[in-house]
Design a binder for these strands. Structure first.
Lengths: 200, 200
DNA sequence: TTTGTGTTTAACATTATTGTTAAACTTTAT
DNA sequence: ATAAAGTTTAACAATAATGTTAAACACAAA
């Protein structure tokens, strides 16, 4: 692994755990096993380094999702595919949702640019989704749902456990690995729950 | 309103929006319409001020929930009551969930102390809930659910929209008030969704 | 062997932020 | 009217964090 990658990984760990504002260049250097001068040798500034980290994480967060939304498959198949993808991706990267959401608050413009750069047109996706939900409602397969509700329900059920991870770990006193194992193992359960909730 | 309350409100707004690390004493003073010297006149330090803010918000976040969990009512009535309470409380305080969860990561010990101080024994609550879920499963009213799953499903569906608020607002381009109105108005829909998903 | 890149060390400049203080002024209560 | 508490101003101390630099060193490639 190159030093640049090494630094980036260390920086990612620290930034995800603490957020941009609380992340310290010293700690990142220490975590990477190098010194602060070398951080600036590779990445001119904290902000520039963070830009790269955020772009990578953003892609991980959204990659695939847009594709599933736009696929020509039934709404139930979309549920299954979305839950499967979300839980797979986030299990490998438990801090991701909170990181993205947290940093978004610090700099909303960045998100908009990222969406454009990655050619994700969410408004268009929602319109199409709305159409499908309406059609399946008319066909009698599902109850009435808006596209917003559909997305929020799935994301809430899949992502919230990871977002609240530390809350739960500390309140319940369970350890991190056990918790992640439990949450990641709920693909089928969550899928069934959503489909049961949607069925007409 | 006393100056102390005025400052506390301003500090709460700023801290909720930016988090402890990124919140600036200058900005808090400006927001409160006073100067920095007076902040320290009332609250010796940023940390001390934040302790008070967090304690208040923590109580708002958990008050009532424990009571409902322990009430002697059917599991479906608990769903209804929990959704109703969560959405009511959080609608009045949309930044609350992200604030609590975000700051928890900075200082997990604080949470544990808060729970003890407020006499909330989550482990005991979960045991009791587990028992009820099992009984209702045996009685044939619901599918099999662990207490964890039950709590995570409800919280995810109720809280996630608020947590992801800015993400959605900026991606979709809807305005904040419209969004909050929409999300808060989903009590019945979310309750129905959960109950449909749980029914045997 | 020389050259260039990567790396460390250590000192330093700069900036940002918190915390402190003294002095003056204002308001409220006694 | 006086005293006490509240508030502002302005300057400053202390600290912490980022960013910069020069000098020396290590090592691999030419």
């Amino acid at each position: 692994m190159t030093t640049e990658e090494l630094i980036l990984q260390a920086a990612t760990r620290v930034c995800q755990e603490k957020g941009f504002a609380a992340a310290r260049m010293d700690e990142i250097a220490k975590e990477a096993g190098i010194n602060r001068a070398l951080l600036h040798y590779y990445f001119r500034s904290k902000e520039k380094m963070f830009d790269i980290i955020f772009a990578v994480k953003f892609k991980a967060f959204f990659s695939g999702v847009a594709g599933i939304f736009q696929a020509e498959i039934s709404i139930f198949d979309k549920v299954t595919a979305l839950v499967d993808l979300e839980l797979s991706v986030i299990s490998q990267n438990p801090e991701l949702p909170l990181f993205i959401i947290g940093e978004l608050n610090r700099n909303p413009e960045r998100l908009i640019k990222m969406m454009q750069k990655n050619n994700v047109n969410m408004a268009a996706i929602l319109v199409q989704l709305e159409k499908q939900l309406h059609e399946e409602y008319l066909a009698g397969t599902i109850k009435k749902f808006t596209a917003y509700a559909f997305v929020l329900n799935i994301m809430g059920l899949c992502l919230y456990p990871f977002i609240a991870k530390n809350l739960i770990i500390h309140i319940v006193g369970v350890d991190k690995e056990k918790f992640l194992e439990f949450v990641s193992g709920r693909k089928q359960e969550i899928t069934d729950f959503i489909i049961a909730g949607m069925k007409a």
